[in-house]
C-alpha cells in the first residue's frame, strides 16, 4: 500500500544528559492514518511523540541530533518558530489536564491566544469543537462552570475539543486512555477512528489490544531503538523480528 508521508523522522537521537532516550530513529508517519507507537515502558515512545511538537525542549539537559520534517520543514532547525509547529498538533496526555478555567474558556483558549477575539466567532467554534469531541450534549447547559468539575472521561474529551479548536493537522495521543474507564476509553477510541479522515493521528499505547483496534500503521520501539515498523496487519500477523514476536506474544513487556 502506498501512502503519503506527513511526518518524516531522519536519524533522530535524543539525549537527556548522558542518557540516550532515542537512538538514530528513521521512520515515516503516514498522512491521515492512525499510527500507533508500541513498546515496553521506558522505551522512548513518549519522547518520540513529544519530539514531534518539541515539547521535549523544556526538559533540562535535552539534546537532539537528526531531523524531523513536518510538511517538509525541519522542526529542529534553530530558525524555526516553535509555536506554529505546536499549533499544527493537538496533544492528549495520559491524564487530562483541563486548564484552570471554565469549560468554554478551555476550548476558546487556543483560539484566543492565536488572535480570535470576536464573541460570535468564539461561540460558534466552541460549540463546533465540543460537538466534534462528542461532549456538547453533556455540557451545553454549564459551559461557564469550571472544567475541573467534569468527570475524568469528560475532561479528556474536553482536552480533545481544546486541541482540535486550534485546527491542527495532526493529533498526538500519549496513552490518552490510560486514566479512563473502559466506556470512556471506547468513546475516545471511537472519535479517533472517525477523525482519521481529517487528521494524521499518532498514538502511544502500551495496550496491545487497543493498538490492534486503532492502528493502520505500527512503530515498535525497544530501549530507544526502532525495531520494526509497517502496516498494522503485517506487523501484528507476521512480525519479522524476534523482539517484535516476543512483545506481541506478551513474553516481554
Amino acid at each position: 500500500m502506498e501512502f503519503k508521508t506527513h511526518i518524516s523522522v531522519r536519524n533522530l537521537s535524543v539525549f537527556y544528559g548522558t542518557q540516550q532516550a532515542l537512538k538514530n530513529i528513521t521512520v515515516d508517519i503516514p498522512d491521515k492514518k492512525i499510527t500507533v507507537i508500541i513498546g515496553p515502558s521506558g522505551c522512548g515512545k513518549t519522547t518520540l511523540l513529544k519530539s514531534f511538537n518539541r515539547l521535549i525542549d523544556s526538559q533540562d539537559g535535552m539534546k537532539v541530533t537528526g531531523q524531523v520534517f513536518v510538511d517538509g520543514e525541519n522542526i529542529f532547525d534553530p530558525q524555526v518558530e516553535v509555536t506554529h509547529i505546536r499549533k499544527k498538533m493537538g496533544l492528549l496526555s495520559q491524564r487530562p489536564y483541563p486548564l484552570p478555567m471554565s469549560i468554554y474558556d478551555n476550548v476558546a483558549y487556543g483560539l484566543r491566544i492565536h488572535g480570535t477575539k470576536a464573541k460570535k466567532e468564539l461561540d460558534r467554534r466552541v460549540e463546533h469543537y465540543l460537538k466534534e469531541a462528542s461532549l456538547w450534549d453533556e455540557v451545553n447547559d454549564r459551559l461557564h462552570t469550571p472544567a475541573s468539575r467534569l468527570s475524568v472521561g469528560q475532561q479528556q474529551r474536553l482536552c480533545l475539543a481544546r486541541g482540535l479548536a486550534v485546527e491542527p493537522e495532526i493529533i498526538l495521543g500519549d496513552e490518552p486512555t490510560s486514566a479512563l474507564d473502559p466506556k470512556s476509553s471506547r468513546r475516545i477510541e471511537q472519535r479517533f477512528l472517525e477523525l482519521k479522515e481529517e487528521y494524521t493521528t499518532v498514538i502511544v499505547t502500551h495496550i496491545l489490544r487497543q493498538a490492534k483496534r486503532l492502528a493502520d500503521y505500527v512503530i515498535f520501539l525497544y530501549l530507544g531503538e526502532l525495531i520494526e515498523h509497517g502496516l498494522a496487519r503485517e506487523v501484528f500477523e507476521n512480525p519479522q523480528k524476534e523482539l517484535t514476536k516476543e512483545y506481541i506474544r506478551g513474553t516481554i513487556s
Partner: peptide, 15 residues
C-alpha cells in the same frame, strides 16, 4: 501547578 498543565498550554502553541 502541574507541569502537564503548562505542557497543555504550550502544545496549543502558546508562548
Amino acid at each position: 501547578v502541574p507541569y502537564e498543565m503548562r505542557e497543555a498550554s504550550w502544545a496549543l502553541g502558546a508562548t
